[in-house]
């Protein structure tokens, strides 16, 4: 196990970029994949793509991010990557339905974002749980799923 107590910086920062690029070509760039929710943790233990046992303990004022460089050595680097997130994309029939949907999501403390007339819910557990909660609205036709379910990072 290796313990990291600080983030070196962004992997694409000018001072690191070339070396990270070189290591990546040499298949010596190891990746720690985290969910977006896990980025808020200051302490965690996880396994990297290459199988390294990685422990992180950051000061409270530091936070992990996509592309955070944890270690850079002549023959190996370790970088944080955020796993692809699934968003449930919804549209509402009218303003009243949109208000109800917004209230409903807020009441469950779901993480949402807005894109034009669409409301996107971050799927943080399994999709069925969200669909079950939304069922009355979906069945009543107040709200519907927009087929192009966007997957973004």
């Amino acid at each position: 196990m290796e313990i990291f107590t600080t983030i070196l910086g962004k992997a694409d920062a000018p001072e690191y970029k070339a070396q990270v690029h070189r290591l990546s070509h040499a298949h010596a760039l190891d990746v720690l994949r985290l969910s977006r929710a896990d980025l808020s943790r200051r302490r965690l233990r996880a396994t990297s793509d290459a199988g390294a046992d990685v422990a992180i303990a950051l000061p409270r004022d530091q936070q992990l991010y996509d592309g955070a460089l944890l270690s850079l050595e002549p023959d190996r680097a370790l970088i944080v990557r955020v796993e692809t997130e699934i968003w449930l994309r919804l549209a509402a029939a009218d303003q009243a339905a949109a208000l109800r949907l917004g209230y409903f999501c807020g009441n469950f403390h779901w993480r949402v974002r807005f894109e034009g007339a669409h409301l996107l819910i971050a799927v943080e557990t399994d999709l069925d749980t969200y669909l079950a909660r939304l069922e009355p609205m979906l069945e009543g036709g107040e709200v519907w799923r927009v087929p192009d379910e966007e997957v973004s990072t």
Partner: peptide, 15 residues
């Protein structure tokens, strides 16, 4: 535990 990046302002992570 060893602290990396000695040029950074390193603080202990706390409990």
């Amino acid at each position: 535990m060893t602290l990396l990046a000695p040029d950074q302002n390193t603080r202990a992570p706390g409990p």
